[in-house]
Design a protein around this nucleic acid. Structure first.
Lengths: 245, 245
DNA sequence: CCGAAATGTCTAATAATGTAGACAACTATA
DNA sequence: TATAGTTGTCTACATTATTAGACATTTCGG
């Protein structure tokens, strides 16, 4: 591989941010696993062809993310490297299936509403445009770090108490179970990657320019009747999506 | 929706680039479909809370991508908006299945090599580290616009003439068929989104800060024997991945 | 204990971005 | 043919990012 670590100027993206992105990807790539340390600032400055201060800005940003920690006299240590691996199987469960990857995963209910839906959402749920649905907005975190935020729609007739259940149980899967639906499957899923908007930056605690993967999913009961329309945005640098057959 | 179009300062991403990203997503979101025009510069400047010149920088970048075209006295027109929808089904075929979405899709062979593989690649293909494989680098385009670049590994014993076939046929699926494998299926696929590196920027003709979706896939013959290890990077703003069951 | 190697902090100069305002050039419409 | 609304271009200046250098502080090994 050994791709040249090139940064470009006058592109609207500050050098320190380009460098931070490159170092971040080197970390998650395992490039520094042997020593557990990032190369010295002066070395990085040489590799990227920039001033040491510029590298320091990049490292400061990564330290801010909790990815590295600098210690005077010693060097800069890698603190964290993994992306969480999210399985996308027929048994959907976006917020579950993390296995032993995190000690604690919770979904926090941000807002709830009952409102008429149209367009995508109505089509996905196969209901008439203008029909009322329950809308829930959530942020899901693993070990205290937000990894995704989602907007979910449920048919109101079938699941009247979704909001309360989600709030109490901290999980959509568990809330479905409480509503008498122990199992559900994926009907369709579409993925798009884009820059995070202002709301997502705030919810996921990202810095501008960060990337989100937006998954638009329709889930159904075992008979294939749609029960959930979900638009989930993952913090791209914290996850890896694993498609399972 | 009507999310507030907020830009942030001192984040390492120039305002004009943040604004370009927002306008780009508005375009692909269909926000300007009624008129086919981007709002006047002075209006955008108001919305984003910046100077008109800053908006002009953003529009210039989008014009450079061929997404919009400004006409003096009239306004700025939207030129292009769609994302290509890539199906990810059990029958993989990344570069196929585009249906009627593009008139012409071709894969261009950039480089070929025979080299020993290790790590990910060897594990995915279930061969001993250090075994020789054929490595092919491709760029795939639809209607002349590059949409993905990929690095592919094939067991050399089984498919000795992959390179020639790919070069001649412009498609990996067709090359497999020519090698006597008419059908193959996905064994595993992992998705990650990140900023494009310098090589990807060049190959996909992207501007710095652009996003790629990296799909790491292992494909096998109908018996489940791995035949291909592929690392495909999609230009995120040109595609949508559709996961099929 | 000394010195090499690393990060931390400061000052100053230069380059890139963003703001502000004025006016020209072009388009469409009344 | 005016006129309003739009993009194109220019100048000047303010703010932010990057470079450059010097030196302090901390860690570690000989």
């Amino acid at each position: 591989m050994n791709a040249k670590k090139a940064v470009e100027r006058q592109t609207g993206v500050a050098l320190w941010r380009q460098i931070a992105d490159l170092i971040r990807s080197s970390i998650s790539n395992g490039d520094y696993d042997q020593t557990g340390m990032v190369p010295p600032e002066i070395v990085l400055a040489g590799q990227f062809g920039v001033n040491r201060h510029t590298v320091r800005s990049a490292l400061a940003a990564l330290a801010d993310e909790g990815l590295v920690q600098a210690i005077q006299g010693r060097g800069t240590m890698v603190q964290r490297k993994e992306r969480l691996s999210f399985p996308i199987s027929r048994r959907t469960r976006f917020s579950q299936g993390l296995g032993g990857q995190a000690r604690e995963t919770v979904a926090k209910l941000l807002s709830q509403a009952v409102l008429p839906v149209a367009g995508d959402v109505a089509a996905g749920l196969r209901i008439a445009p203008g029909t009322d649905c329950i809308q829930l907005s959530l942020v899901s975190s693993a070990d205290g770090r937000p990894v995704s935020c989602s907007t979910n729609f449920f048919p109101i007739g079938r699941f009247p108490h979704m909001a309360e259940h989600v709030e109490k149980l901290g999980s959509i899967t568990k809330a479905f179970a409480a509503e008498g639906l122990p199992d559900y499957v994926r009907i369709s899923t579409e993925l798009v990657a884009r820059h995070a908007d202002a709301e997502e930056l705030a919810l996921l605690r990202l810095s501008p320019g960060a990337i989100v993967i937006e998954a638009t999913a329709v889930n159904g009961d075992p008979d294939g009747v749609p029960v959930q329309f979900a638009r989930t945005r993952f913090a791209a640098d914290r996850v890896k999506l694993k498609i399972e057959t």
